[in-house]
């Protein structure tokens, strides 16, 4: 126990496209830290952000709030934000929140990057 009790975050950059690999647990006690680390990692020229959630085990509404903030920052028409590889449990709360209607959701990072 303990190893998955906080979040992990790493970035991959290709031109103006950023993939954020998110893992672990994002709850109300660390969502602010997650938000701060993400927001300080972008350049103003970044146009596409894909959030890879393959290793994300848990997220609460505090973490969803951060995703919404990112979606607003990377909004069309000049930018894109997508979430990819959500677990079934996380996809369920994204759907109950109605986020699936305002955020692009893909089964894999590859699909999220290509937009289809």
């Amino acid at each position: 126990m303990g190893s998955n009790q906080t979040f992990q975050l790493s970035f991959q950059r290709s031109g103006t496209t950023v993939t954020a690999h998110v893992g672990g647990r994002i709850d109300s006690s660390n969502a602010w830290e997650f938000d701060r680390e993400l927001q300080s990692s972008f350049k103003s020229s970044d146009a596409v952000l894909v959030m890879d959630c393959k290793n994300l085990r848990y997220i609460s509404s505090a973490g969803l709030r951060v995703s919404l903030k990112l979606a607003k920052r990377f909004r069309p028409p000049s930018r894109r934000f997508a979430m990819a590889a959500l677990s079934r449990d996380i996809e369920e709360i994204v759907r109950i929140s109605g986020f699936d209607r305002i955020i692009e959701i893909y089964s894999t990072v590859e699909k999220a990057l290509s937009g289809r």
């Binding site: 609460s60 969803l64 709030r65 109950i96 209607r101 305002i102 955020i103």
Partner: peptide
Amino acid sequence: NPDTDSDLLSRGIGGLGLHLVKSQ
């Protein structure tokens, strides 16, 4: 009364946590 319908820019998140708990 959580906001689960409005468009991206005007979307708020107040009440969402309790909405999730009650829905599940």
